[in-house]
Design a protein around this nucleic acid. Structure first.
Lengths: 237, 237
DNA sequence: GGGAGTACGTACTGGCGGTATGACAGTGCC
DNA sequence: GGCACTGTCATACCGCCAGTACGTACTCCC
C-alpha cells in the first residue's frame, strides 16, 4: 500500500516536468504495479486508465506505448500476480516427495495464496470475466491449475493406476474448482485460519477416502458405460 | 440549457410505433429477455444499454424507469436465469427420497443446466465479477448453492453424523465449487455427454469414498486441532 | 550532424452510462 | 365532463473514459 518511490522517478520529478526515458522497464513495472493495486481495490471496470497512469506517475502515452490497451494491461497484471503465487506455492512443496505430502502442502500453500487480495480479486474474481473463460483457462493451465494437475496425478497414480489422462484431468478440474471456491470463502471468513483448517480437513478426508477405496480394489466407474447407460434419449444438440 | 421539445414527439405518438403503456410488466420482461440474450452473447461490458433497449423495442427512459441502472438490470437477468435453473433442478429430483439418489440426480441436472449458455455466461462467468463475490454468494445461497447444501447435508448426515453446520457448509462449498468448475469445462468440451459422464463418475467415486470411510468409523479430523497445530506463526493481519 | 528509432507527452474524439425533464394515458374525484 | 395525480414511458443532454493522432525530447549510429 505505501508506494515505493522507485529510485529515478523522484530525480526526474524534481529535475523537470518531463519524465526521462532511461529504463523502459521501470515504467512498465510501475504501470503493472499501479494496475495491480487499483484492479485489486476497485475492480477492472471501476479502475480508469487515468487513475492508473496517475498512480504510476506517467501519462497515457506511456501506457499505450507499453500495452495495447486496458485489457492487455490487465493481462500483464494477471500474469504477474499468478507468477508470484506460483513461485510461492512451488517453494512450499519443494522438499516434499511423497504425493500425499505434496498434495497436502500444496493445498495449504494455495489457501494462503488465495487470501492475498490481489490473487483473490484479480485472478479468481475478475480473471474469468475479463479474459474470457477460455483464455483464463489457458493461463491457469501453466500456473495454479498446472500445479494441481501434477499433485492430483501424483496422488491418483500412487493408488488408482488405471485412470487415463482425461479422467485425471477431470479429477484435477474438480479439485481445482473445489480449492478455488473454498479458498474464496476462506478469504471472506472472519476467522480465516479456522476456515482454512476446515477446508484442509475436508479435502484431506476426501483424499483419504479415495485412497481407501483403491486399497479395497474399487475403481472409478467407466464414464463410457455411464454415458451409454442413460444417454439414449439425450438430444444430440 | 432548457429543453426545446415536442415536435417529433407528436409525430411518433400519432405514427403508432410508440409502445403503449398498459402492462408495465411486459416492458420489464422484454428488457430482461433482451438483456439475457445480449449479456449471454457479448458479456456485460460488451453490451451497451442502447443495444438492450433497441432489442427490447423501448427507450432508455423505460429502462431507467424499471431499473436503477445497468447493474440492476444485470441482477434481474441473473435472478431470472438462476430461478429457471433452480426450478428445473428441483423438478429433476422431486421424486427422489434417498440422499444419495438426490445427490446423484441433482448433480446430473446441474451438469445439464450449466451447459445452458445463459447460465454459464451470466451466472458462472460474469456473475461474481459484476455483482461482486459477496453479493453473488448471497444470491446463490437461495438457489443452486442452497440445493447443493441440502444434498450434501443429506449425504453427510446419513453417514457422518458428528459434523457441525460449519463443516457441512465447508463440504458444500467444496462440492459446489467442484461442480461449477467441472460443469464449466463440460460446457466447453467437444463431447459434452462424455465429459459430463466423467464428472459424474469422479464425483460419484468421491461420495462413495466418504461413505466407505464413515462405515469404517473414521471421522473428519477436527479443524480446531489443525488450526492450533501449525497456526502459531500465522500473521494476524 | 542528421536520420531512424525509442519512449514518451498532449490534445482530442466517440461511445456509453447516467440524468433531467417533458409528454401522455389512464384513474379517481368533484 | 373537467382536473389533478400518478405511473409509464420518450428525448435531449452531460460527463467520464478508452482509445487515437500527433508532436517531441533524447539516444544511437553512420
Amino acid at each position: 500500500m505505501p508506494r515505493r518511490p522507485t529510485e529515478k522517478l523522484l530525480e526526474v520529478a524534481k529535475s523537470g516536468t518531463r519524465r526521462q526515458r532511461f529504463s523502459s522497464g521501470s515504467t512498465r513495472r510501475a504501470l503493472i504495479a499501479a494496475g495491480e493495486e487499483l484492479f485489486t481495490a476497485q475492480g477492472y471496470a471501476g479502475t480508469s486508465l487515468d487513475a492508473v497512469v496517475a498512480r504510476a506517475e506517467v501519462t497515457k502515452g506511456a501506457l499505450y506505448h507499453h500495452f495495447s490497451g486496458k485489457q492487455a494491461l490487465f493481462e500483464s497484471v494477471f500474469e504477474s500476480v499468478e507468477e508470484r503465487a506460483k513461485v510461492r506455492i512451488l517453494e512450499a512443496l519443494r522438499t516434499d516427495t511423497d504425493p500425499f505430502d505434496r498434495a497436502r502442502h500444496g493445498l495449504r500453500a494455495f489457501l494462503e495464496e488465495v487470501r492475498d487480495p490481489a490473487y483473490s480479486r484479480v485472478v479468481v474474481q475478475q480473471g474469468p470475466a475479463v479474459l474470457g473463460w477460455e483464455r483464463f483457462r489457458e493461463r491457469e493451465e501453466a500456473s495454479a491449475f498446472g500445479i494441481v494437475l501434477e499433485a492430483v496425478r501424483g496422488v491418483l497414480e500412487s493408488s488408482l493406476t488405471e485412470l487415463d489422462d482425461a479422467m485425471v484431468e477431470t479429477f484435477s478440474r474438480i479439485f481445482f474448482g473445489a480449492m478455488t471456491s473454498a479458498g474464496e470463502s476462506v478469504s471472506q471468513a472472519e476467522d480465516q485460519a479456522l476456515a482454512a483448517a476446515r477446508v484442509e480437513s475436508a479435502i484431506g478426508f476426501i483424499l483419504t477416502g479415495l485412497a481407501t477405496l483403491s486399497e479395497q480394489g474399487l475403481h472409478v466407474p467407466d464414464p463410457y458405460d455411464l454415458a451409454r447407460a442413460d444417454g439414449p434419449e439425450a438430444q444430440p444438440e
